[in-house]
Design a protein around this nucleic acid. Structure first.
Lengths: 209, 209
DNA sequence: TAAAAAATGTTGCAATTGCAACATACAACT
DNA sequence: AGTTGTATGTTGCAATTGCAACATTTTTTA
């Protein structure tokens, strides 16, 4: 179920796709999507996995966002305004392409599913903002320990559990927290030794409070 | 000129405000806005200045966002989903309140200015995302020096000038970069001594490259 | 399944940073 | 104008961190 089409029946989805003159494109692994598509579009990942990557003047690459099934991206949605950004597929990926200008056009007004669509779109962008704020909240902590604990707390609150299954590798976690991987590894060791957490592989159990 | 009403004539703005059943509220300095308004709303700062502040379990307060004239906030727009957040006025502030549910209602469809309004709303949320990404880009730099230079570069590129007028105090800049103020002050001194920048008060001139 | 690549764990060490404790400058208030 | 409060500049020092260089394990790929 595509979040952008939440509360829109399959029949109406078909109408909507036609109304918005969407297209579906398939990209092979390791393809740069947004050099192909220069237009003002919104992309929805239907299948596969891609990343928004920024390359700065020094050639350093940063992962701005990870795009899984259901996620959306686009020049007018997520951080692609700066020209150093690219969307690159990391697996074979199927993408729904929607022309942004079509979305805004007034002729669509009469369709109720169109309104639901806009509502969904707003909701998704709002969620993206929330996620960014979460990361900022973590990044502003001054020590690696505090960053880890903030990450754990947010996860724990969101999932309502004190057992954390890391959704990615420790290497990626270090990137996300913007700290050195080995230093993070050391800090995790200390947290274990001091009895704050327990861990086995990517499962981490919170023991404090 | 309110950005949310961009490309909407004054006459149509009036109609829109009526259609959306908006209200305008005045808040004294140092008032908590969002305890008064629990509903799902969007607020537009018409005059004044406010901050979105998060207080965590330790009682630490972080400025999540600064709200000036033209900026928008709301449970469904900016990071207020987590209940630790408050909007607090720092001056006497005039706020336009819009019921979020009204925005979404289908009965509005027939009005062309309504579409422009939605378009503006999407554009603003998109800009918020861009700003968040900028800050994340800065925060992921590992040294104070790199954070400063990234901040300078973004500013410089945005304003098309190599002379920077800090929009806030050095204390606030340190907060924004999430570093110790005195350590930042020291780093600025080094940057000056090494001839990368020049500065007088809050005016900083970039000398490199 | 063997080889190559990526992820993880560990540690010493030097560089960077936060913190504390100041002095001084600037601003706001009465 | 004088007092109070906040912003800024400075510096020593201890804590934290990044970096480099490994060993080991796990995963991917040919």
């Amino acid at each position: 179920m595509i979040r952008l089409f939440n509360k829109i029946s399959v029949k109406e989805q078909a109408k909507l796709l036609k109304l918005l003159e969407t297209s579906i494109l398939n990209f092979k692994k390791d393809t740069i999507i947004l050099s192909t598509i220069k237009e003002n579009i919104i992309g929805v990942i239907l299948e596969g996995y891609a990343q928004i990557i920024r390359t700065d003047y020094n050639g350093n690459r940063t992962i701005i966002e990870e795009l899984e099934e259901n996620d959306i991206f686009g020049s007018s949605i997520s951080s692609l305004s700066s020209n150093e950004c690219q969307v690159i597929t990391k697996e074979d990926t199927k993408v729904l392409i929607i022309d942004y200008d079509r979305i805004i056009e007034s002729k669509n007004n009469t369709y109720p599913y169109y309104n639901q669509f806009i509502k969904n779109l707003l909701e998704i962008t709002t969620n993206i903002i929330d996620e960014k704020n979460e990361r900022i909240e973590i990044l502003t902590k001054k020590t690696i320990r505090d960053k880890l604990l903030e990450y754990f707390n947010i996860y724990s609150k969101k999932h309502g559990t004190r057992i954390i299954y890391l959704p990615f590798s420790f290497t990626d976690l270090a990137d996300y927290l913007a700290v050195d991987r080995s230093a993070m590894s050391r800090e995790l060791k200390y947290l274990k030794e001091e009895g704050f957490i327990n861990s086995k592989g990517r499962r981490i159990t919170l023991l404090y409070r």
